[in-house]
C-alpha cells in the first residue's frame, strides 16, 4: 500500500539512544562554518551555563534523520527513496543539544497530501532526553521535515 492518508497520526517507536558527542559537535560546526566558541570551547560553554559544548541548531538532523528513515524504509509506506526530495525543514528548540546528552527521537506522520502527481509528507520528530528509566523524558527539540515524493515522470 503506498503512502496515503491512513498514515496521518501514525507514531513510530522511539529510536535507539543517540549520544551527542563533543567531537561530533566540533566536526559539524566546522562543516557549516559555525564559529561560535560555545561549539568548541568547553570552558566557554560552562561559563555560559552549559555542561559541555553546545551543538549548532541544525545538528538535530543527525537524530531526526534516524526518525525519518523509519518512515522511508517502512515497507508498508512503499517509498521509492530515489524519488524523495526534501522541501522544508524546521527546528524548534527548548534548549540547545549539549555534548553528553542521551537523546531518543519519536517520529509522527503529521500530514499526507497529493499535489500535482507528487505526494507531500510532513514528518515531525520529537527529540527527548532519556530519563533515568531509559524512557523518553523532557522534550529538547522538535523537528519537522517536508518530504516530496515525486510522481512518475
Amino acid at each position: 500500500m503506498p503512502v496515503n492518508e491512513s498514515f496521518v497520526g501514525r507514531t513510530y517507536p522511539p529510536t535507539a539512544t543517540y549520544t551527542v558527542g563533543r567531537e561530533k559537535i566540533r566536526e559539524f560546526a566546522a562543516a557549516v562554518g559555525a564559529t561560535d566558541p560555545l561549539h568548541v570551547d568547553v570552558e566557554a560553554a560552562r561559563r555560559a551555563g552549559y555542561a559541555d559544548v553546545i551543538a549548532p541548531p541544525t545538528f538535530a538532523v543527525l537524530i531526526s534523520q534516524l526518525c525519518d528513515a523509519q518512515f522511508v524504509t517502512d515497507p508498508e509506506a512503499g517509498v521509492d527513496f530515489s524519488r524523495v526530495v526534501h522541501g522544508e525543514q524546521s527546528f524548534d528548540h527548548q534548549r540547545p543539544l549539549v555534548a553528553g546528552d542521551e537523546i531518543v527521537g519519536v517520529l509522527t506522520i503529521e500530514s499526507v497530501r497529493g499535489a500535482g502527481g507528487h505526494t507531500m509528507v510532513a514528518l515531525r520528530s520529537d527529540l527527548h532526553a532519556v530519563d533515568t528509566a531509559g524512557a523518553p523524558g523532557a522534550l529538547v527539540c522538535s523537528t519537522r521535515s517536508m518530504l516530496v515524493i515525486r510522481g512518475e515522470d
Binding site: A29, V32, G33, A34, T35, D36, L38, H39, A48, Y50, I54, P56, P57, T58, E88, Q89, S90, F91, D92, H93, P96
Partner: peptide, 18 residues
C-alpha cells in the same frame, strides 16, 4: 543557521524554519 547564530549567539536561537 551558522551565519545567524555566529552573530546573535547560538544559545539564543529558539526556532528555525528553512
Amino acid at each position: 543557521a551558522a551565519a545567524l547564530t555566529d552573530r546573535v549567539g547560538v544559545e539564543h536561537l529558539r526556532a528555525l524554519e528553512v
